[in-house]
Each structure stands twice: as C-alpha cells, then as structure tokens.
Design a protein around this nucleic acid. Structure first.
Lengths: 225, 225
DNA sequence: TAGCCCATGCTCAACATGACGAGTTTGGTG
DNA sequence: CACCAAACTCGTCATGTTGAGCATGGGCTA
C-alpha cells in the first residue's frame, strides 16, 4: 500500500479589529523558503500534538502568548506545488483575538511579527494569500450566523463597539437603530450598570455577551445587516 | 526544523437518496487494520494527485466509476490515536450522487461496497462514525442554504422528488403547498413540457434546475422548511 | 447656553413565513 | 363510469422581520 511521505502543517488566521479596521497577524520568515517574506503563523505538527486543534493552539501561543481563544478549523490546502520543499498539506485555522489584550512576539523561526490591515497586505509566502481570502469569506459568514463577533471584543463592550466589528468585517455601514434593535431583541446581551469611558459625547452603556442565553434560544438568530 | 512523518488520506462521504431515505456508500475493508469492518471509501494521497480534490476524485472513481459529480472538502481529522498505524490525517470530502445512475464496484483493497441507510449504519472502522455524523450536519445545512439538493437528483425531476430529498435529509415532513410555493417562487426551476412516468394517479410535471438563473439572483434564497 | 454628536427609544408600512382549508385536475383502476 | 390518489391551484390569516422616519436623552465643548 503506497503511503507517500507528506508533511502536515497548521496555519493560523488570527484576526482582530483595530481602530475600525480588520487586521490579521503575520510573521516575517527567518529561513528559506520565502525567507524575509511575510506569512501566516504556523508550523509542522509534532509528535506531541494530540490533535490538529492542539497543534494550532500551540502555534498560536508561540506568537501571541494567549490561550483560551476562539479557534476553529477552516480548510485544508494541499496542492502539489504550494511548498517548494515537497508535498506539504496545511490545515488552516481561524482565530479571533482582541489586539489590545495581548502582546505579540516573534517565535524562534520568525524575524518579526505584526498586525496587518487586511486591506493592505504585503506580498505573502506560499499560497497564503489564497488562504487568507478564503478565511475572510468564512469570517463574514461566521459573524452573520454565529456569535463569533464577541470573540473579537473584550468582555464588556458597547453596542457601538459591536457594530464597528460588524462594519469592519462586512465592509459596509449599518443602520445604527436597526443594529441595536436586532441585538437587543436577540436576548443574548446582558446590560450592565456601567458606561464606557468619558468621550466628548454621551457615554454608551456596556453589555456582556451571555453564552448561556444564546444556547437556550430555540432557534439560532441571524445577524445579517 | 522538526517535520515528523505523517500520512494523509482522503475519505469520501458519498450520499444518495434512495426510496425516501438517505444512504451513504461504505466499503468493507479487505486488510488490517479493521479488516472486515465497514469504512468510508478513501485512501492515501499519492504522488500523482495534483491536489487534495484530485485525490478525492480519484478515490471516488475507484468505487463508483463516476466523475463530474458534486464533491466538496468538508473537514480534516487528525487525532493522534485515530489510526493504529501511526499518525494519519484524513481530509474528508462530501459527494452527492444519484444511486440509480451508477454502478458501484469494490476497489482492489476492499472486499465489498454497498449503500447503507444512514439510520442503520454498521459498526465502522477508525473514527468514521464521527466523520459521518459531522458530514450529516453539514449536509443538512448545505441543502438549506445552497442548491446542493439538485446534485442528488437526475437532470429532470418532479417537485415531489425534490421534496423527498429534503425530507430524507432533514428528517421531517414538509408541507407540500409551502414547499412548492417556495421553490416555484425562487425562480431557479425551469418547467418542462414533460411529465413523469405513468403512475396510478396523475403524472407530475418535470422540472430542471437552472444554474444560470440561480447565479443571477440578487440574494441567495434559503430553503428552510 | 447653544450646538454638536452620538445613544437610545418608538413607530409604522411593506414584506416574508408558516400553518392550514378548500377545491380542481388528471391519470389509472375496479 | 364512479372512485381513488396524488398533482396542482388558490387563498386566508396570524406572526414576525425589515428598513426607515421621527423624537428625545445625555454628555461634552465653545
């Protein structure tokens, strides 16, 4: 039975919303192939990885120090020519982070790590541009049909913060009143007795996402705007 | 840089609707591990496979002789203990077929091949039971949000045929009048000047799915019942 | 205090959805 | 030819959703 040697990597699409724009975490490669190019954080799965998810988790920790974040398998890419070193199949993962709450650091095989606005990406190694394009499509879908957007926000947030996340990912503006109506009516937000920092205008009320309430809903709500 | 030896397989979830029930194609394993157990059709990727999709296509042809069918990557499974031979990552694929239009045949490494109703599955090799469970969830979703159901039908079909597909996959009955209303109103069916075979009652009109009309729609319709 | 800017709340018409009743058409069958 | 069974047509009605207008609240700044 033929069982050709194949190597398997995991690559992480780590997204965050920063100043109204969607950003993705990239590393600058220290070694060939594609030395000095920007690429997705990731690496080969090792003997210690019990599962693919664990491998993705490990790679993410190496770059961001954070664990316990939203992490979900996206898609596997395995075209023959995608890696000059030979047959490498990569399993891509989607991670949703809060940029402010973590300190990124380059891992040993990278000479740099940075957040890049998805609208101004640099040239990318391997087929990573295509992988990101796929991830963006899936992310748009995710926030419309799941509560994934809350993973991009701190525990306490304003409805405006939430709307900014949706606008950044969907790429268009949303009517503020209808946005509020839908989310407040969905019954998945817990209103807090606190307001946001002082602004030059009226402070907004803070909310929390209630996982429990969401699970209790008879039907999954949709957040299409 | 550690690059442990991993082997990669593709496994195919080939579904078809037969006599009102949803069925899946399984093969009986000729060799160990899990000799004589039923399993998903599939196998290791080879040097000749240009892409993962091509490998899945090849495996499907080996069992069914059909090509040019709906085939889509689903999910990759790579838990450490899922294959007793060592680290094997499998990329699962969803295929939608018409049972009547093809003749299945066991490939060289199988002692049998058969359609099994998904409600009465035998004991399965590896983690294939879990893979099928995942595929069923995705299939339900697929027919609600995409025109995937038409891949399970011949080119010409009656609205009743279409409804049977939905009922088989969703697992519940659907109001015939509302079902017709939604599909006829969707503008994606071309009515033909033909009717179905003679039955002991009124013959039903035949329809064709119009891919072009579907693509032209401003918004994707949903087929939730 | 006026003005600004956003937060927030209320309303309403247009439209879509799902449950259901009733009746007509069209073939075969006894 | 009466009858059956399913295909097909038409319409009702309560309910919910959507998008947009209108109004007010509550902080800050000039």
């Amino acid at each position: 039975m033929a069982a050709p040697s194949v190597r398997v990597t995991v690559d992480i699409l780590a997204f965050a919303v920063h100043e109204g724009g969607l950003e993705i975490l990239l590393v600058k490669r220290k070694y060939d192939p594609f030395k000095s190019s920007w690429a997705l954080p990731g690496g080969f799965i090792t003997e210690k990885d019990e599962t693919l998810d664990a491998a993705a988790q490990r790679e993410l920790v190496e770059e961001t120090n954070v664990s316990n974040v939203y992490l979900e398998q996206l898609y596997s890419f395995g075209d023959k020519g995608r890696d000059p070193r030979g047959r490498v199949v990569t399993v891509s993962y989607l991670a949703l982070l809060q940029e402010e709450e973590l300190e990124i650091k380059a891992s040993s095989d990278a000479s740099g790590v940075a957040w890049w606005p998805v609208k101004e990406l640099p040239a990318l190694a391997f087929d990573h541009a295509a992988i990101i394009a796929y991830g963006l499509k899936r992310l748009k879908y995710k926030i419309e049909y799941t509560p994934a957007a809350f993973s991009l926000l701190p525990t306490k947030f304003t409805l405006r913060d939430l709307q900014i996340v949706y606008e950044a990912i969907l790429g268009h503006e949303i009517d503020n009143r209808n946005f509020r109506k839908k989310f407040l009516g969905a019954g998945i937000l817990r209103q807090l007795d606190e307001t946001s920092q002082e602004t030059s205008f009226r402070p907004a009320r803070l909310y929390e996402f209630s996982e429990q309430d969401f699970e209790k809903l008879p039907d999954r709500p949709v957040f299409i705007f």
